[in-house]
């Protein structure tokens, strides 16, 4: 079985600006794969390339072995996408929206009805099935996007920041649901700003920055790349940090405690304690602070200027041009008030 997603030297250029700069990435079938990166890293551009909303400038992109341009129908049939934007048909009740989506994938009407009801129940908004999208709350809208992605029973579920702006309860509900789907065999590609989310859910994560892959690893492997801090409370603290072995990258005093930055806090602590006792210090307490994935992420993506890439444009509403805050619906209403035809 070919990988769920395979890209080779993927490039996307917007004029002079390169949103994706030779990205090569493989997501295996059945994986729960995370894409992390700051705004403008190219995460949404990457996803949109898979589903035909962005045309690549170069490189090769395949979904379950199907080229996304020459075999776009097979590639798109395998994908269920829950995007960041609320891009849902406003003309129809949400149950019909789901049925239409199923129909576009060739699912007959009776089966489409059954699936629409099933996914609405699964995401917990079945009682809103006859409402139109605009009448749903923010959390329900998020749930609907997930339902729409699921109604075609996709082999590859793509979730583009699915928990952005949702409350804790919904976030946990969504985590539970996608974990369940992944356990049932669905490959999941998740982009998120919440490091905890990636750490909790993903088998592997790729960190992107400025359209390039910085690294791909499991969350545990990434954390191992960071440093830990050992804090040793001393009975008789010195006025300056004592000299320690090469294992200590840095040492400083914080009140009565000596703090030492090391690669592996658990393995290094005994030696540190021995060294301190040998120098005559009385140890009162010991605490090891492990590196969080968030700290590793910040280290890996740190850059002087975060606003250099054009791909910000594809990365969400926060990138709307100034003065363009009016919603599509509001502008549509303006148009209709002016006598526009539909």
């Amino acid at each position: 079985m070919p990988p769920a997603i395979e890209t080779q030297d993927l490039v996307k250029e917007y004029g002079e600006l390169r949103a994706l700069q030779g990205l090569s990435l493989t997501v295996e079938e059945g994986e729960f794969f995370g894409l992390l990166g700051p705004n403008g890293a190219g995460k949404t551009t990457f996803i949109n390339t898979l589903v035909g909303l962005v045309r690549k400038s170069g490189g090769d992109v395949r979904v379950f072995g199907h080229d996304v341009e020459t075999e776009y129908q097979q590639a798109r049939d395998a994908i269920g996408l829950a995007p960041q934007e609320f891009n849902v048909d406003r003309f129809f009740p949400i149950r019909e929206v789901l049925m239409h989506k199923a129909g576009y994938h060739g699912i007959p009407k009776d089966e489409a009805e059954r699936r629409a009801d099933e996914v609405l129940k699964r995401v917990g908004i079945y009682d809103k099935r006859d409402e139109r999208f605009d009448w749903l709350s923010g959390g329900m809208k998020r749930r609907l996007l997930l339902a729409r992605a699921l109604v075609t029973d996709p082999d590859l579920l793509i979730l583009d920041e699915p928990t952005a702006g949702v409350d804790v309860q919904l976030r946990h509900d969504l985590w539970e649901l996608v974990t369940e789907l992944n356990e049932e065999g669905t490959t999941v590609l998740l982009t998120t700003h919440y490091i905890e989310e990636a750490e909790r859910l993903c088998d592997r994560v790729a960190i992107l920055n400025e359209g390039q892959k910085v690294t791909v690893a499991t969350p545990d492997e990434l954390k191992e790349r960071g440093t830990d801090t050992i804090s040793v409370a001393l009975e008789n603290p010195p006025s300056t940090p004592p000299s320690l072995g090469a294992y200590a990258h840095d040492a400083w005093l914080a009140g009565d405690a000596l703090e030492v930055r090391v690669d592996d806090g658990g393995a290094t602590a005994p030696q540190l304690l021995n060294d301190l006792e040998a120098e005559g210090y009385d140890i009162v307490d010991l605490e090891i602070t492990r590196t969080s994935l968030e700290e590793v992420f910040v280290d890996l993506t740190r850059h002087e200027d975060r606003s250099v890439t054009r791909s910000d444009e594809g990365d969400g509403s926060e990138d709307q041009p100034p003065g363009d805050e009016q919603s599509g619906t509001e502008r549509e209403e303006d148009f209709l008030e002016q006598g526009g035809a539909v």
């Binding site: 776009y72 048909d89 929206v97 549509e332």
Partner: peptide, 26 residues
């Protein structure tokens, strides 16, 4: 003319034409 132009433009404006574009229709 109005039906086709409005439906496509409105779908682009509110981005729900993505429902069609990201589907496996030829």
């Amino acid at each position: 003319f109005e039906n086709a132009s409005f439906s496509i433009f409105h779908g682009r404006w509110n981005e729900y034409i993505h429902e069609v574009i990201t589907s496996p229709l030829s």
